[in-house]
Design a protein around this nucleic acid. Sequence first.
DNA 1: GGGCGCAGAATATGATCAAATTTCTGACTG
DNA 2: CAGTCAGAAATTTGATCATATTCTGCGCCC
Lengths: 239, 239
Amino acid sequence: MPMMNASLKKEASATSTDRQSLLPKTPAHQAVYTKMRDAVLFGDLAPGQPITIQGLTTMLNAGMTPVREAIRKLTAEGALEMQGNRRASVPVLDLHTLEQLEFMRLNLEPELAFRATSHISDGHIAQLTQIDDNLNNAIAAGDISGYLRLNHAFHTTLYAIAQAPILAQSAGALWLRFGPSLRVVCGRFGTSNLPDKHAELLDALKQGNAEAARAATAEDILQGMIQVRAALSEDAAAR
Amino acid sequence: MPMMNASLKKEASATSTDRQSLLPKTPAHQAVYTKMRDAVLFGDLAPGQPITIQGLTTMLNAGMTPVREAIRKLTAEGALEMQGNRRASVPVLDLHTLEQLEFMRLNLEPELAFRATSHISDGHIAQLTQIDDNLNNAIAAGDISGYLRLNHAFHTTLYAIAQAPILAQSAGALWLRFGPSLRVVCGRFGTSNLPDKHAELLDALKQGNAEAARAATAEDILQGMIQVRAALSEDAAAR
DNA sequence: GGGCGCAGAATATGATCAAATTTCTGACTG
DNA sequence: CAGTCAGAAATTTGATCATATTCTGCGCCC
């Protein structure tokens, strides 16, 4: 009974050279990981929602092993948590956890902006400016999903410039923890009051002013965390 | 019926090693993860040494899937790294990476000691004192492996008291990165010049002096990182 | 010296086993 | 007599394994 759609995902391909040779570069578990990561980051998986492994295999048309490995990886990064039994779910943020995330972000990300200033090039600035322009358009259009993705892309791109992979990776793991709640914030307050210290940050980067870049990043983080805290407090009060 | 060689690991049932079948509480992938984690932390796996998945299945008498999942988890935590091919290995520390680790440790662990001061109890202090006594004995006896394990246990125990799971988890991931090099340090300099700011730290905890605990932890970290940096520089010069 | 298999290892799949949640039944109590 | 709760069967879901397939590395032959 439960085995019927397994065959229609890959038809009998007579020519194994054309399509296969064009994209054999993506390992399945990595593709699954990226999709699930984005789903967590951009709110496609709501906090508290249980993750079923078999549901993902059918949803992503993937095997069981890649899904399991992606779940393990995301669990290690804090994007998912194993509830006492062997079920995984997107963790719900509480104020105590949020405070720790804010502490770590304020220690990590301003430092990354500081370091990026030393290694930035004109091409990098153009790239960041492009992202920020699209981001402002998304805000103006009320495009929540676009805002989330572009905001994430802006910070990720900047931190990659800092040439500090450990710090950048740690900061990326933190984003996985509060990403789902960012979606909640936007759903509650819309895109009107979103923080945008990116202009100040870009100015500082153009001038090579590392201290100003650090300060602007700290401001941006504080603004965002205040919004998330407000949404969380409201949720706790409504319960 | 096709399981012939899989049975011989369970055949010696009446003898000593079959506690697992009597206590089926531990999932296999978790047991494998813990063993590999300890092997990385305490230098049983040397940096640069390639990890073969089939070697681990036979070495740990485990299946293939649990080993794969443990490798994914450790890779996500930075304990292992995937080199371009699909081989994994214990990463070798360079000075640039070490600097980032020091930066993060100095931001995280003193804060954890600071927070632990508020929540500590007499039982906790007794526990930490016990560990530190054993640690001093290990140093006096030149027991490198014992020193590594007890030093790790001391810090882990303290950080668990701080009631800040995100910070503690992040700090634990950092230990996975410089753990292998700690073994190298000990192999080079012995246990004579090892840092031991634990006495100061314990005094501060007993007095409830959070600021002193923070400072003592920072000193302990700096001492240890200086040692690791010296060993790394020596290695780089010898090559 | 370079292209071509060949061995070995890693990835991915489906099947099988075990555990847990759910559901259904039945009895007991108010 | 009805409602509720305990317990057991059943279904769902996670964990593990054996196997097939694919890719990498290396040696060999041209």
